[in-house]
Write a protein that binds this DNA or RNA. Sequence first.
DNA 1: CAGCATCCGGTACGATACTG
DNA 2: CAGTATCGTACCGGATGCTG
Lengths: 120, 120
Amino acid sequence: MCPYRIVLEHVTSRWGVLVLIELLDRPYRFSELRRAIGRVGRVSEKMLTQTLQTLERDGLVHRDAKPVIPPRVDYSLTDLGREAADQVRALALWTEQRMPDVERARHTYDEARTRSAQAS
Amino acid sequence: MCPYRIVLEHVTSRWGVLVLIELLDRPYRFSELRRAIGRVGRVSEKMLTQTLQTLERDGLVHRDAKPVIPPRVDYSLTDLGREAADQVRALALWTEQRMPDVERARHTYDEARTRSAQAS
DNA sequence: CAGCATCCGGTACGATACTG
DNA sequence: CAGTATCGTACCGGATGCTG
């Protein structure tokens, strides 16, 4: 499989999308980020960790761990990450905007299928 | 979960991305589309069917089934689908472009981890 | 050719408990 | 607080066989 597709899948992954969009606003701490995303769709601690590690490895997210007690870790976007996040957010906004059209299309589709089911 | 996130996941899904990008060039028949995508990552017949149905239901893809023997079905983008596909392609192109940066970031990341593993 | 039905393995994902 | 480790499950996705 093409190497760039891997990165594309990281960026467009379920939680990757949400992480990038949230971090576009401002840096977040781990649990804080988890709560912020939680308003849209609950993410498990494990998945958030995994997603952040993947994005960090790809150079999209910067992890700043301060050696204090209790631990404090801040996540932010790198310049590269911001470029990706901008595009992802644009896509998300577009989706939100076009939701009515999608709903209408679905309704038409479902009705057509219901009819043909009745006809059988 | 927010309704628009569902659509976003359809669009950014593994095969959804590739279908949208391919259809941006021109309409495709089923098997033809499968082969076209196959150059990047093999997709099973089942997944392609499923992806196309989802995108059709969301009003992004138009399905034109001609009642002939042998069957001929053409898939194309709707206006709505083209809007989505444009954004997805932009993201894919960006990813391809920035691949060197990602590779470099990964190398740095992996090396740092190797070192700390040796230190233990 | 286009697609549906069925079975099945891998893994993505969540819940929980534990550590520094 | 910010994770790691372990376990169980649900679902993704592939392989195969069949239909119009």
